[in-house]
Design a protein around this nucleic acid. Sequence first.
DNA 1: CGGTGCGTTGACATTTCTCAACTGTTGTGG
DNA 2: CCACAACAGTTGAGAAATGTCAACGCACCG
Lengths: 231, 231
Amino acid sequence: MSELAAFLRGLPHVSGLPPELLERVVGLCRERSYARGERVFGRGEPCRTFHAVRAGGVRLTRSTPEGREQLVARLGPGASFAEAALLAFGRYPVDATAVEDPTVLVTIDGAGFQRLLQDDPRAAPAVISSLCVRLAELVERVDELSRVQAGERLARWLQRQPARGAEGRLTVELGLPKRELAAHLAMTPETLSRLLGRWRDAGWIESDRRCIVVLDAERLAELAEGEGQAP
Amino acid sequence: MSELAAFLRGLPHVSGLPPELLERVVGLCRERSYARGERVFGRGEPCRTFHAVRAGGVRLTRSTPEGREQLVARLGPGASFAEAALLAFGRYPVDATAVEDPTVLVTIDGAGFQRLLQDDPRAAPAVISSLCVRLAELVERVDELSRVQAGERLARWLQRQPARGAEGRLTVELGLPKRELAAHLAMTPETLSRLLGRWRDAGWIESDRRCIVVLDAERLAELAEGEGQAP
DNA sequence: CGGTGCGTTGACATTTCTCAACTGTTGTGG
DNA sequence: CCACAACAGTTGAGAAATGTCAACGCACCG
C-alpha cells in the first residue's frame, strides 16, 4: 500500500497534502488496467471519480457529430485528469481512451475526496495551487496557439519540454507520435515533418521517430520569437 | 458598503460564499480608478493582491523582448484576474493596462484572502469551482484555436458569446475593438473583416462597429463544425 | 514474410498573411 | 462649430505559408 502512497505523493493535487490526509486518499483509490484503445469514459457521462495515470497513456478527445476527432490532451504517467469535471460540473466534458497496451489508471472516489476537502482546510491549498498550475499551463498553450506561424508554435513547444543532455545538445523525448504532436500544435503531420526536415537541413536539430535533439538552442529561441523562418 | 458587497456577490470566486464570509471579503477591498492606458501592474512584479473590474476594462498582455505585444485576455466589468498568480506563483505573469477612461478596479488583499481560505473550509469550494470554470473556458478556447480555418474559429467564438434578441436574430455585442477580437482569434484584422464581409453578403449576419447580429444561427452552427466556408 | 500504420516527400490548391491605400468615425483644439 | 489629426475598419493585389491529395519507404508485429 505504501507503494501506492508514494505514487500519489507525486500527483499534483495530492503532493501538498500532510501525510495523514494522504493516507485517507489512499483509501479512496482503486487501480485498474486497460487495453490499448479501450474507452475509459465518454463525454457527457456522469462523473463521480477522477483518475491518475500510473503507467501507459491516455488520450482526451472531443468528437464532432460528423466524426472528426479533436485531441484535447495526451497524458502520460504521473498526470491526473477529470478533477475539474468532478469538482465543478459532474459530467465528463471529453472522451478518454487508453493508448498503450497495459495502461494502468488509479481511480479516486470523488465523493470521498470532496468530503476530505470539506473536513480539513489544509486540503484545499494543495488542490487550489495545482489547479492554478494547470491554469497557467493552459494560458501558456493559448499563447502558443495564438502564434500564426507553425514554426513559432513548434519552437515554443520544444522550449517548454523537459530536456536532458548537455548545453548545445538538448534531447527532447517526444512521448507521443508525431501525428498527435502535430494535432496538439494545430498543424498537419506533413507541415510538422517539413519543418523538422528544414531545421535538420539547416543543422539546428536532429530528429528521429521518438526524439528531437536541439543543437542550436539560440536559434530555437529566435524561431520562438518569430524571426527568420525561411532557411 | 453593501453596494460593494452586491458587486462582490457577482464575482466568480466569491459568489458561492456564505454571507458572513462575504462580509469579511468586503473588508479586504480597496477601490481605485485608472485612466485610459494607465498601467495596473507589470509582468514579473510581486503579486500580493488580486483584482476585479468594476467599470471600464483591462487588457492583459505579454510583450516579447522585441516589443511585439500579445493579447492574453481582455476583461470587462464583473471579471476578476490575477487570482491564480496570487494563489500559486507570487508574481504577475502578464502586464495589465486599463483600456477605458475611467476604469475602476476593486483590489482584494491576497494575504487576507488566503487567511480566509485557511480559516474556513466553506470558502474553498467557491474558489475551487470558479477555478474549474475558468479551466473549462480555457480548454474551450484551446479547442477553438486548434481549428485550422479562421471562419470556424470565428463561428465558434460567436456561438459562445452571450446574445440577446429573438430566435433568428441574435445580437452579440462585441465589447472590444475588432482588431483585438482578431488577435484573440489568432487572425489578422483584415481576415476578420473579410470573413464578416462575406457572411454579410451571404445574408447570414449583419455587422457594425460594435455588434454582430446573427440572422442564420443554423448556418453559423454549420460553419462552426467546419462546413462550407466559401460562399 | 506480408501487412498495417507512421512518417516522409512531392505536386498542387487554398487560405491567410503582408503591404498599401483609402474611408469613416471620434475626439481635440483652434 | 469646424478643421484636423488619430485611429479603427475596409478593400485590393500579390506573396507566402500551410493544407490537401497521393505515392512511397520503413519499422514493427503477427
